[in-house]
Design a protein around this nucleic acid. Structure first.
Lengths: 349, 349
DNA sequence: CTGTTAGCGCCTTCAG
DNA sequence: CTGAAGGCGCTAACAG
């Protein structure tokens, strides 16, 4: 099942027994000493510690957990693309909250590949992580079904659960997009393009829905020629934008569904000499210093990570408890931010 | 020792025995079935799988590893600041190579805090990771000494080992800086400032050394008034730059020792109206589109991660082997890139 | 083809 | 204060 090639034997680390032999005591005494169990004489304790140090002994956490029947203190985090600052910020948030609670993060990058995502989830489950935070790359969440995960707590980020009943941390993708597009419309644009993920993904469908709604609410029609939906990648977005701009009847404005598209589109717009307005989902570093006005749907990705980890921790703590609350959703607020051309607004990082 | 608060009991997952009982076979048969061991009749295999599915059974990896005496297949990665794209790229590289070899990544962010770094290293070691990749935040590496880590393989990234004998992936900090500063000098600058980390860090000392050398090689003196060394943070760098610029005799050029400083300095330079040249370590997204010419010391941070993981994997594979090679160093090539003002150079991501 | 025995490294329980 | 037995969940090695 788990695809992991044969690993080498554990490089012969000393066991508790070897320490015991060296210290002339029983393994039990070593165990007690190491756990600061009261009831070990100062003399033996010293002997034991000497042996421990001499041998460079370290208790085997796995064996410990096995014996104690307790959990690993690990939380699995699966993101789609760490190269996107959105996800590294989210990861940072998860890591911070996890550490705060003595837990650690097992990280996996799916690269927007559903197969890899499935493998990661499966593998993390086999490793008995206490819970899972997943940014799913598709709307198919069957691999996250509680049945397949043995009721391991799962929290989704950036994408609501489909046919499964788990917590999620979300953005208001629809409203955020709607507002940004309306903003473009209010500036007089009628030929507005959309760059985003395919409909098989949540943001791909939801942000597109917001785009369509904004157009329709303004009495405009959605024109397929202005819609480009593909893999989230700066270079691809740049090319797509060139394709849009180099038509007889190019759009006068573009809405980009995430920061990868925004940056790609920006590059292309700068590469042509047409005045094209740009609005996009995601705030990102240096956006305020670009050489054209830009409207973004801003929010705090780190906060998303923190919120997801909080939800997860709560589930973990209350696993087995009878008062298990139903699936919850936390919505991270978004706001429209208009950046002028190239000036000021200190941001930290 | 390990600071991890008492965790809840493992939420009663089914064991191999329960599956066996339900399938009316011995645990051994279940074990074999699950591992696709040949020598299980189709009939019993089916019965076992039914039970497995009915119970939602998953083998316990920890118990397995314990029994097989093999390692965890985990590699610990400790970085200083995930919010810095440099480190998220490095992480991506490590994750990619790890996954390629059936290993997983345990991630920790030290936040440039040596205490947290020590805790992470200690905890990862207790969890029996197969090896550790660390971006140390200080020049004190005593917590990484093989004695304290039970000979667990360690690879340093971005910082060479100090008083320990381990592999490392490095940049040529000195030469890269030297060239960038020389570049500024060749443009006629003589009052060149330095923004970087304190001397207690590797890049803080090494890049500063390159800066000094370049000045001295050109017959220029290092002027303390133009040297600012502090925590790596955009906002702090911006303030520091204002302080530099708002003096009677401000520098005409600034060398920034990493992308955080570069961005901070850029913001401040844009905020004043003085013509100030800028050169910095690290390439970063959008640097080519900033509104002033900028020289950077460029390299591929993802490749650093890949190289570090490769070194580590090699050590892990050859642990115990007699032909253990001495500590190695991989130097990731850097090159000077001059960006003009605001145009073209597609980059992906 | 299937089951039994034994033990990975550790710790709880109960005897000294 | 210390030790001996037994078992967490799993699987090699050896029966049958």
């Amino acid at each position: 099942m788990t695809i992991s090639q044969p690993r080498k034997r554990d490089s012969s680390r000393p066991t508790i027994r070897e320490v015991a032999r060296r210290a002339q005591v029983s393994p039990m005494t070593v165990s007690r000493t190491l756990r600061d169990d009261p009831g070990v004489s100062e003399a033996t304790r010293a002997r034991v510690m000497d042996a421990v140090i001499a041998l460079g002994y370290r208790p085997n956490e796995a064996a410990r957990n096995l014996r104690l029947g307790r959990s690993t203190g690990l939380i699995g985090l699966v993101v789609t693309n760490l190269a996107n600052p959105f996800y590294s910020q989210l990861t940072l948030g998860v890591e911070a909250l996890a550490t705060e609670h003595g837990m650690r993060v097992l990280l996996g990058n799916s690269g927007e590949d559903p197969v890899r995502e499935g493998q990661l989830v499966h593998d993390f489950a086999a490793r008995r992580v206490d819970g899972l935070i997943v940014v799913p790359c598709r709307n198919d969440h069957s691999h996250l079904h509680p049945d397949r995960l043995g009721d391991m707590p799962v929290v989704l980020a950036a994408s609501p659960p489909v046919k499964i009943d788990v917590d999620a941390v979300l953005l208001d993708d629809f409203a955020g997009t709607w507002e940004a597009v309306r903003h473009l419309i209010s500036q007089g644009h009628t030929r507005i393009a959309f760059l985003g993920l395919p409909a098989s993904t949540w943001t791909g469908s939801e942000r597109f829905r917001g785009y369509c709604a904004a157009l329709e609410d303004a009495g405009l029609l959605v024109d397929d020629r202005y819609v480009s939906r593909q893999h989230s990648d700066v270079a691809a977005a740049e090319l797509a934008t060139y394709a849009l701009l180099d038509t007889p009847d190019p759009p006068t404005a573009i809405f980009t569904a995430n920061n990868r598209y925004t940056i790609g589109a920006y590059r292309a717009i700068r590469g042509r000499d047409k005045a094209t307005a740009l609005a996009g989902f995601d705030d990102f570093e240096l956006v305020d210093l670009l050489a054209m006005p830009l409207t973004v749907v801003a929010y705090d990705p780190r906060e998303m990570g923190v919120a997801a980890a909080r939800l997860l921790r709560d589930r973990i703590d209350n696993a087995g408890s009878l008062k298990v609350h139903p699936a919850r959703r936390v919505v991270i607020p978004t706001r429209i931010v208009e950046y002028g051309t190239g000036f000021r607004t200190p941001r930290s990082g």
